[in-house]
Design a protein around this nucleic acid. Structure first.
Lengths: 202, 202
DNA sequence: GGACAAGATGATACTGAGTCTCATATTTCT
DNA sequence: AGAAATATGAGACTCAGTATCATCTTGTCC
């Protein structure tokens, strides 16, 4: 063999397979619509059996939603982590959005398509909201170190994560309603700026 | 006939039927579990046919989630509206929670059961999150009049609604994880107090 | 008050999601 | 290499969700 990856072939294969399923699901749903995309189609496109699909995702919609949002989801948490140490929690989040906004114009068509698709069916939208909770947690963990005086059960990191995702969702709603013409990053900043954290809250 | 209600018999019947379906769904799901409750069961319990069920709810989980949360959902918006005019937006929300907290001890067992049930299945949790968005909107509309300088596209009411529901959800998570022993209203206040609105944000 | 339009309901049939079981194949450990 | 553990695929099965059509109830117009 060439290189023995971190922890066995199984782990790596699972990650790859999961990504391949999510990508196939999102691509097919984008091409022909959600209702017209069956799990058999997705499984075939991903080169796996139907039963195997359900070992990776609980539902069709979750697979699609994952495929739609893996682009730019946990990415956000990583970008937040990469911001300068001097920045406070919300400052880091705003800076991260500003940073992501720089490359937004190239991603605009894809972003719009994905945002429209995730809002086109209430089932899919429900699962998208479910994913947002995961990102909330990821954001909360990413910014936690930036709180100087952090108690174990401090509500601020989780609330900061929640309002980060709420700002993203609400801004996206407005942006999609406008046909995707406006400036999404700026809109998100606007929503985000309308709230801030209480300094010494316990 | 005795009294001719507002706008016809049809309207009233629809509202009643919808409530009866949601109640039956939540009750059966609570008694025997979500997976063990079929739509045929719910329809039979509500005294309607299977096809009629889908004329009122898009999915089984949505019916259950609606039945679980119609108690205390839009109620919140009404309570907020009933708060004294002098209070600002977040003050009104905090006061509303304080008011609701007074009768919490009687509702505690029911609340816990419903919170646990809605978290017991990821499908149901996803639909519950979907309902939260409706409440966000309801809360946003309820507090909008309390903003003195409100622009048409002001992000603050929606963000206030979002963080209100986020606080409720996150506090409830902690409360359920603790087995429902703690003081949920106080916990919610704590989460809510960790953020506030930026005064003059546009 | 009766006839007609509009909407609500129920029965039935059909597709596809999601679950389960078992036989087979692949990876890991010794 | 061989055994144990785990991943996969195939097939059968239940039930969610959709669509159609006939029947019944409500609202309206004369």
């Amino acid at each position: 063999m060439v290189v023995k990856d971190q922890r066995g072939v199984r782990e790596r294969k699972r990650v790859e397979t999961r990504a391949r399923i999510a990508d196939s699901a999102a691509r097919l749903a984008g091409e022909r619509g959600i209702a017209e995309t069956t799990i058999d189609d997705i499984a075939a496109a991903a080169g796996i059996g139907r039963a195997t699909f359900f070992r990776y995702f609980d539902s069709k919609e979750l697979a699609i939603a994952t495929g739609l949002s893996d682009v730019g989801a946990h990415v956000l948490a990583d970008v937040i982590r990469a911001m300068p140490d001097g920045l406070g929690p919300l400052e880091a989040i705003r800076a991260a959005y500003a940073h992501l906004g720089e490359s937004f114009d190239q991603l605009r068509p894809m972003f719009l398509e994905q945002a429209q698709l995730s809002r086109s069916s209430s089932v899919l939208f429900a699962w998208t909201l479910h994913l947002y909770v995961d990102w909330e947690t990821a954001v909360a963990e990413a910014i936690a170190p930036r709180f100087a005086d952090l108690a174990a059960d401090d509500p601020r990191p989780r609330m900061a994560g929640a309002l980060t995702m709420a700002a993203a969702r609400l801004a996206c709603d407005v942006w999609v309603a406008d046909g995707g013409r406006g400036d999404l990053p700026a809109l998100t900043q606007k929503y985000l700026s309308s709230v801030h954290l209480t300094p010494g809250a316990s």
